[in-house]
Simulated scan of single mutants.
Amino acid sequence: MIHSSIGAVILDWAGTVLDHGSRAPMAAFVKAFAHSGVTITVEDARGPMGMAKRDHIRLVGAAVNQAWRARHGHDFNETDMEAIFAVFEPLNVAAVKTPEHSTLIGGAQAALAWCQARGIRIGSTTGYTRPIMEELAPLAAAQGFTPEVMVCAGDLPAGRPAPLQMWYAMAKMGIWPASSVMKCDDTPPGIGEARNAGCWAVGFALSGNIAGLSEAEMAEASEAERAVMRARATAELMEAGAHLVVDSIADLPRAVAEIEARMAGGESPAL
């Protein structure tokens, strides 16, 4: 079936719709590892962002395994991962409840209203677990973000970049084919999720994890500094398979228009 218009947009949450810079998990990861006597940097914590949080902790643990072995006398293992996760999740829950980490990114409300006016349906997937989202979703709803479906890390057997969350979201919404769906995300695993699901993948360069700045910090950056951040994020997201990269959700209408133009020209997300 050939479509020339986008029927649904599936959105990531942190760094895509709210929490400019995807900053809520950072301190939680650093504190959780510190609780076990191992120091990690914010850059260590940011590396696997977008993945399910248990997978994320596994990768950070592997990256700092030498320090872990020096502190604990053994390689980082599954028991260690679960211990870190047990400390991390409550810290992340507390973080997302604060206004700085739950506020919609500038332009989000207008972009969502634009989609609604065009009949474009909105769903969501996230690397956050359901306990985290049970706290965050009502705060987003109070600001007007109420996607039809919210698929969380841990809801399905495999997280990003596996396509299962996307497929589940589409199945719950009754949206098909995948080529009529656009996924927006600020991380390579989230872009991989879209590509593996057969959907259009649009990356957000300046609002997300790769740039890592709050909205206020981004506003204070010079145009030259923003250009450097944009170039770095664009390169990472395009390497992960993004069909298009824009600055933020404020650019969603332009992204839809560009993807629809490519669809009208006969292009499909599989190409």
Rank of each mutant, 00 (worst) to 15 (best):
P269R: 06
Q165T: 03
A178I: 03
N77Y: 02
R54C: 00
S124Y: 01
G61T: 02
Q143V: 01
M170R: 14
V181L: 15
M133R: 07
A216P: 05
K31Y: 10
L206P: 08
K172D: 12
G50E: 04
L104A: 10
D55E: 05
T16H: 05
V87H: 07
L164A: 09
I10W: 08
P25A: 01
K97V: 08
F88E: 01
A32T: 09
M182T: 09
L104W: 09
R121N: 00
M133N: 02
G7E: 02
F145Y: 08
L18C: 15
T103D: 02
E215C: 13
C152L: 07
Y128G: 00
V256Y: 05
K53T: 00
A227L: 15
P253W: 13
F145C: 01
M173F: 03
V9L: 06
N77E: 09
D247E: 08
D247Y: 04
A250Q: 14
E225Q: 12
P147M: 02
S36P: 08
H101Q: 07
R232F: 13
P25S: 01
A110E: 14
M263H: 04
A171E: 15
A108V: 10
A242E: 01
A137S: 13
L213Y: 15
A205G: 01
D44E: 09
R232D: 14
A201N: 07
G21V: 12
S179M: 02
L139A: 06
E225S: 13
G241H: 15
L156P: 01
S222H: 08
V256D: 03
P131N: 00
A216H: 11
H56L: 06
G107D: 10
A194S: 10
A205D: 00
D12W: 02
A227E: 14
A142M: 09
H3W: 06
R118H: 13
G107W: 11
A261N: 05
H35Y: 04
A194I: 10
P188M: 11
L136N: 09
P48M: 07
M133A: 07
